[in-house]
Amino acid sequence: MKRTWMLAAAGVVVAGSAFAGPPEPSEVVFEDGAVSNSLSGVPGDPENGRQIMNKGAGNCIACHEVTALSDLPFHGEIGPMLDGAADRWTEAELRGIVANAKIMFPESMMPSFYKNDGYIRPGDAYSGKAPDGLLGPLLTAQEIEDVVAFLMTLKEE
């Protein structure tokens, strides 16, 4: 039953937006480091983006401080503070930075979250071992959109 429902829901999404599915990371079009088109074709969910900021392969606050997330402990000091990010950057720029910050900032320490090849000794997550096949990107297309939607709420002006 559940499976049938999910298939039906997927059909509605595809029919509704005429979206062909997320692009391969290598197919994403960057212009000056920014990405204009949604990666998933589905609006980002800022609440889920908030969760990703704190956990898993996102864990953005490991390096960035965000006042809006001050209920969560231990914000890092590696990258720039993100308060007011939506005042400083457009949605397309934020999408580009989250997807692959090294396009805009070649020397950046920031991991590239929508990339899946070109690594030196890639591993299977944190196992320390080589992966069996191709790696997926650190975040899915929808998770990127969710994070971008959250970042777009960080306004000070």
């Binding site: 690594y119 030196i120 000794r121 890639p122 591993g123 997550a125 944190y126 320390g128 071992k129």
Partner: peptide, 9 residues
């Protein structure tokens, strides 16, 4: 440390 970069260590 190298494992924690998601690498084959």
């Amino acid at each position: 440390c190298i494992r924690d970069t998601r690498a084959e260590t």
